[in-house]
Amino acid sequence: MMSEIEISRRGVLAGSAAAAAIAAAPHVEAQPAKALPPATMPVSLTINGKRRDLTLDTRTTLLDTLREHLQLTGTKKGCDHGQCGACTVIVNGERINSCLSLAVQHQGDEVTTIEGLGTPDKLHPMQAAFVRHDGYQCGYCTPGQICSAIAVLDEIKRGDPSHVQADLTQRPQLTSLEMRERMSGNICRCGAYSNIAEAMADVAGVDVKEMEA
């Protein structure tokens, strides 16, 4: 095994200014001279109730696993950096950005995507509410919005606190303000936010008109 200092020397020989600075600072990991060849690993996970066994490049995100390897293209790639929420899926009951998670991190996990929530003949209540309240225009962010919306109602029911809660020791209330704050990780370029909030209120059994008052 090479010592850290030897690795640093090799970096200096590679000739970059950065490597020279690294040699002077032993805390920094040396930049490798050569990239590794791609590595693959077996990954098994349950997606929408169905077990999937795959062999994937370790770099494959959960999002790309769904879209590129399993043709589950309902989950969308927006920014690919966790900023837009279009890739939101539910993993072991919690919503996450599938673009910021590697498939290998999800060995044995249960993943629910938009395809697992409902079908055109039998919509999930949140899907039906989005249709009823016109909670989208172009539809690109919608699968992520719907996965997030379902999880948000669970989070409020479970009593998770939020930024807009006045008293942290109390349970959060099903208000428009709470739902909007909790949905801030899902961006809608078309600006369908108010209709999305109405769809969520409908599913939560809250009177929309009362909420707006």
Binding site: G82, G85, T88, E94, R95, I96, N97, L100, S101, S148, A151, V152, E155, P161, S162, H163, Q165, L168, R182, M183, S184, G185, N186
Partner: peptide, 18 residues
């Protein structure tokens, strides 16, 4: 409470779950 307040002021629900 300052800790809960700080955490829920940051990121999004999806990110805080991971």
């Amino acid at each position: 409470g300052v800790l809960t307040r700080a955490i829920v002021a940051g990121a999004s629900g999806q990110l805080r779950n991971k």
